Measured scan of single mutants.
Amino acid sequence: GPGLTDLFKTEKAAVKKMAKAIMADPSKADDVYQKWADKGYTLTQLSDFLKSKTRGKYDRVYNGYMTYR
């Protein structure tokens, strides 16, 4: 089956995709945050998933999740 690194890459891609969806349409934020909360994502995990070469690119999404939880 898929190894943990593959799983991480898949999760990371999914999280980034959802983060971009929030940035494009902030009204989606609560739905996405709820999904992440259901998956039990911690802020540390989210921070790892949303690492970007562009500093602060996903800060709004991260901060939103922090206040959501």
Rank of each mutant, 00 (worst) to 15 (best):
G1D: 11
P2Q: 13
P2C: 15
P2G: 12
G3D: 12
G3N: 12
G3Y: 08
T5F: 07
T5A: 12
T5P: 09
D6K: 07
D6L: 08
D6P: 10
D6N: 08
L7S: 15
L7R: 11
L7Y: 11
F8P: 06
F8E: 08
F8A: 10
F8I: 13
F8T: 06
K9S: 05
K9V: 09
K9L: 10
K9H: 08
T10S: 13
T10P: 07
T10F: 10
T10Y: 09
E11N: 04
E11L: 04
E11D: 05
K12S: 11
K12Y: 04
K12A: 14
K12P: 03
A13C: 14
A14G: 06
A14T: 08
A14R: 11
A14I: 13
A14F: 10
A14Y: 13
A14P: 02
V15N: 02
V15G: 01
K16G: 02
K16L: 14
K17H: 06
K17G: 07
K17V: 07
K17E: 09
K17C: 12
M18P: 00
M18C: 10
M18Q: 15
A19C: 04
A19S: 03
A19D: 00
A19P: 01
A19W: 01
A19K: 00
A19G: 02
A19R: 01
K20P: 00
A21S: 12
A21H: 06
A21M: 13
I22A: 07
I22H: 01
I22P: 00
I22E: 00
I22Q: 01
I22M: 09
M23I: 11
M23T: 03
M23L: 14
M23Y: 04
M23A: 05
M23G: 02
A24Q: 10
A24Y: 08
A24G: 05
A24D: 12
D25K: 04
D25P: 00
D25L: 03
D25M: 04
D25S: 04
P26W: 13
P26Q: 07
S27N: 08
K28H: 09
K28G: 06
K28C: 14
K28I: 15
A29E: 05
D30G: 08
D30I: 12
D30K: 12
D31L: 10
D31M: 11
V32A: 06
V32F: 05
V32Y: 07
V32E: 03
V32R: 00
V32H: 04
V32T: 10
Y33D: 00
Y33K: 01
Y33M: 01
Y33H: 02
Y33F: 08
Y33W: 02
Q34D: 04
Q34P: 03
Q34G: 10
Q34M: 12
Q34A: 13
K35E: 12
K35N: 08
W36N: 00
W36F: 03
W36M: 02
A37E: 06
A37S: 11
A37V: 15
D38W: 06
D38I: 09
K39N: 11
K39D: 05
G40F: 03
G40E: 05
G40S: 04
G40W: 03
Y41L: 11
Y41H: 02
Y41Q: 00
Y41N: 00
Y41R: 01
Y41M: 11
T42D: 05
T42V: 02
T42Q: 03
T42L: 03
L43A: 07
L43H: 04
L43V: 07
L43E: 06
L43T: 06
L43N: 04
T44W: 09
T44C: 14
T44G: 08
Q45W: 03
Q45R: 07
Q45A: 06
Q45M: 11
Q45L: 06
Q45G: 03
L46N: 01
L46G: 00
L46F: 03
L46I: 11
S47H: 12
S47R: 15
D48Q: 15
F49R: 02
F49H: 02
F49M: 11
S52T: 11
S52P: 07
T54E: 09
R55H: 15
R55T: 14
R55F: 11
R55S: 14
G56F: 07
K57D: 05
K57Q: 09
K57I: 07
Y58T: 01
Y58Q: 00
Y58L: 03
Y58W: 08
Y58V: 02
R60W: 09
R60N: 11
V61T: 02
V61G: 00
Y62Q: 06
Y62V: 15
Y62C: 10
N63R: 14
N63P: 02
N63M: 12
G64C: 04
Y65H: 00
Y65C: 01
Y65M: 02
Y65V: 00
M66H: 06
M66A: 15
M66N: 07
T67F: 12
Y68A: 02
Y68W: 15
Y68F: 09
Y68L: 02
Y68D: 01
Y68E: 01
R69T: 14
R69C: 14
R69K: 12
R69F: 08
R69I: 15
